[in-house]
Amino acid sequence: MIRYILRRILFLIPVLIGVAFCVFTLLYLTPGDPARMILGDMATENAIKEFRAKEGLDKPFLLQFGNYIYKAITQGDIGRSYITKRPVMNEIMATFPATLKLAAFAIVIAVVVGLPCGILSAIKQYSVFDTLAMIFAMIGLSMPVFWLGLLLILLFSVHLRWLPPSGFDTFKAMILPSLALSAQSISMITRMTRSSMLEVVRADYIRTARSKGQKESVVIWVHALHNALIPVVTLCGLQFGHLLAGAILTESIFAVPGVGRLMVESIKMRDYPVVQGGVLFVAVAFSVVNLLVDLLYAYIDPRIKAQYR
């Protein structure tokens, strides 16, 4: 198991270097000179030259990239923001808690709502509830988060005056963004729980349990659920990763000071190091969450655990 984990982590390194390379190339090709953007209209040619030299922007592309990777690996230094001059890592770490909170809230809501709906749907397959749940899940999947966000603001902030439309300092202010962000995950978890339950219910051991005369509720809640949950747990993990990254739009609607908003602002201000660092950071977070999901998967499903030795 430990060897497996180590192998996975080792495998992560080339992937991340690849990500760094892609992002680096993209931003390198972006029109717009960061030196002029940062120094402003009045900057002298000399100042711009010096800035380029200081930030290494005058070096050949591969050298710039190599330098970046070298520093990242040896010193954990992924550059400094052009704007605030702080290490990019500080900038990201200052915004990450908000994103993490947002994503965590959203996943909790998604599980609390999605799981029971999925189970109920499966138990009462083809019932009115099932049909409605499936249609709503589809609507949830199709709902653009930025539109849902605006509708929530319109209803809860403008008309009912219950919840604030921005600010992420209080519990109350976190409700709307989390709700908006969770909609897609609720739908996915509902759908996945339902189909997974249905599959399990047809399985042989459930038939065996039934034929042994166990109560239907025991069959459903003990035998079926336990096995049906395995893929659902995986989905939840994957969803959490997506939420971490996908919060960009939600953050910009509700003015949540998270990583997504930091990146959008940085793109607009040509603060390349922050954009690079941000994408890299999200990729790491995403990969780590995926790794954890795989491990969890192995943990709850003994059949898979055996393969990892």
């Binding site: 120094l39 402003g40 009045m42 900057a43 002298t44 000399n46 100042a47």
Partner: peptide
């Protein structure tokens, strides 16, 4: 050069 933005 630190003050390039307000050089005016």
């Amino acid at each position: 050069d630190a003050g390039a933005k307000i050089a005016t």
